Simulated scan of single mutants.
Amino acid sequence: MTTDANAEQTDQLAVRRTIAASPQTVFGVLADPAQHAAIDGTGWVRDPRSSGPITAVGDVFEMDMFHPNVGGDYVMRNEVVAFDPPSAIAWLPIGQGPDGQWAPGGWQWRYDLAPSGDGTQVTLTYDWSDVPQFLRDNIPFPPFPVSHLENSLANLDALATGSKR
């Protein structure tokens, strides 16, 4: 696994891992919001509010979330901004503000997949380059260490290969 050493300077964290499963298998896990809580390396993602797999750019899926710093339970909408089976999938989280309005926070989750030997090289990128200053003034970015992304790829590995973590 490799980690982008310039992550904080570029407003991105990126980690890579080779998973002993086909790109189609790995992509299938990522395209199923019901698997996202099991993939999550932060422990914040809970159950999906949406059923069925992600199928296209523009799809929106909702997830129940939990974080003690935001008052506990909340809902996050996610708009799919990249969908290229079995090579790439990405979504832009959209949160509900105190005024009840939904707005993107400016961060994105992206998975890039490439065949590698008998498996798939997966690159997970967390990009917060579009986070507005008023959010940066109230939330430290990145809001978690790179180990959370590494944990996510380890969890994805276990789901895609059927191994235990």
Rank of each mutant, 00 (worst) to 15 (best):
L30R: 03
I94H: 11
P33T: 14
V15P: 03
E79K: 12
M63N: 01
V80M: 04
P48N: 10
D112E: 15
A90D: 02
G41Q: 07
D84C: 06
S50G: 12
L30Q: 05
R46G: 13
R17H: 07
E79N: 12
L30F: 12
H67G: 14
T25L: 13
M65S: 02
N69A: 12
Y111D: 01
W44M: 00
I54L: 09
A21K: 03
P33D: 05
A34W: 02
L113R: 10
G119V: 10
Q96M: 09
P53N: 12
V29C: 04
S116A: 15
F61D: 02
R77Q: 13
A37S: 13
G28T: 02
G72Q: 05
I39H: 03
G100W: 05
A38H: 01
Y111C: 02
L30D: 03
A82I: 15
I94M: 13
A31I: 14
V57K: 13
G41V: 02
I89C: 01
V57E: 09
W109Y: 10
P48S: 13
V57F: 07
P68F: 13
W107D: 12
G72F: 06
P48Y: 00
G43N: 07
H36T: 01
Y111L: 00
I94C: 08
F61V: 08
G95W: 10
N78V: 00
G100T: 06
S22A: 15
T42C: 07
I54Y: 02
V15K: 06
D47T: 06
Y74A: 04
A103Y: 03
I19Q: 05
G97V: 00
P53E: 09
L30S: 01
P53D: 11
Q96D: 04
F83Y: 15
A34Y: 00
G43L: 06
P85A: 03
L92E: 14
P115L: 04
V15T: 11
P85Y: 10
N78G: 06
A20G: 02
G72P: 03
T120C: 11
P98D: 13
N78Y: 13
H67D: 13
F66Y: 14
P53F: 03
F66G: 01
P33R: 05
Q121S: 10
R49C: 09
E62S: 14
D47L: 11
F83L: 13
I54P: 01
T55Y: 00
D32P: 02
Q35G: 05
Q121N: 13
A103F: 12
G106C: 11
I39E: 02
R49I: 10
Q24C: 01
P98H: 02
P85S: 07
R77H: 15
R77G: 11
I39T: 07
P53T: 15
V80W: 11
T55F: 01
V75M: 03
G105I: 12
D73Q: 08
Y74W: 15
D99C: 04
A56W: 01
D84E: 15
S51P: 05
D32V: 11
I19S: 04
I39Y: 06
H67E: 01
G43C: 07
A38I: 07
R17E: 10
